[in-house]
């Protein structure tokens, strides 16, 4: 119960600060919108080829926009040595990490929710044909990005090149989750119900999320305290 209260307090603090400044949100949303618009010029948006790569395009945009949000996560704690004060408080490193992960997750889901309708308009695609399964894919893959990204945001917080290092470190680890998300998103935007073999990708996403959430919780104390 205490753990849950601490998680809620940290998530609430980060969301409140983000709502007030909108630094990460605005940058990530602007980036995502620009990439979606540029691709719509580069590729014929009505072609079959575009339909086949729709999932890939969306998740490249979400993953890169996510890096902009995640890059702000732990550096937010550095200006007044606030991280020291948090770590000296009763909040445990796993509760601190989970709270920050939830805040990043909410921000990234909000960006994705705004990008999907724009994607539909720019590429003339009806993305609402499998809404429940598409929502499940978005939630599972976004959690994968945020849980790995937040722990690496803690790891790179004191690096001078952290804006560069974070994507370099997280994208290779995210390959299985992004592959699953791209496959499923392409399939679901096309409107086809998943065939028995496609459920493997859902299982992969669920397993990925569970394993990396547990790993992040187990390693965060070492990451933050050495």
């Amino acid at each position: 119960m205490r753990f849950a209260r601490h998680v809620a307090a940290i998530a609430g603090k980060d969301l409140r600060a983000e709502i007030r400044t909108k630094e990460g949100f605005n940058a990530a949303l602007a980036f995502a919108v620009v990439i979606l618009i540029l691709f719509s010029f580069a590729i014929d948006p009505t072609s079959e080829q575009m339909r086949e790569m729709s999932g890939g395009l969306l998740w490249i945009v979400f993953a890169f926009a996510g890096a902009l949000v995640l890059n702000r996560s732990f550096p937010r704690e550095t200006p007044n040595d606030s991280l020291d004060v948090l770590l000296a408080s009763p909040v445990s490193p796993p509760a601190l990490l989970l709270g920050k992960t939830i805040a990043n997750f909410v921000i990234l889901i909000a960006i994705e929710s705004l990008c999907l309708p724009l994607f539909g308009i720019l590429y003339n695609m009806d993305w609402t044909r499998q809404p429940a399964l598409l929502a499940a894919t978005l939630l599972l893959a976004t959690w994968a990005i945020t849980v790995i990204g937040t722990v690496f945001s803690a790891l790179t917080v004191n690096l001078r090149l952290r804006e560069l290092m974070l994507p370099v470190l997280i994208y290779p680890m995210l390959i299985p989750a992004l592959m699953a998300a791209m496959k499923l998103t392409t399939l679901l935007i096309a409107g086809a119900p998943p065939e028995p073999g496609d459920w493997l990708w859902f299982r992969l996403l669920i397993g990925f999320d569970i394993i990396f959430t547990l790993l992040a919780q187990a390693l965060v104390e070492t990451v933050l305290l050495g």
Binding site: K13, R16, A17, R20, T21, P79, N80, D81, S82, D84, V85
Partner: peptide, 8 residues
């Protein structure tokens, strides 16, 4: 550091 959040 003073350990406060400027945005709050």
């Amino acid at each position: 550091g003073i350990g406060i959040y400027d945005d709050l």
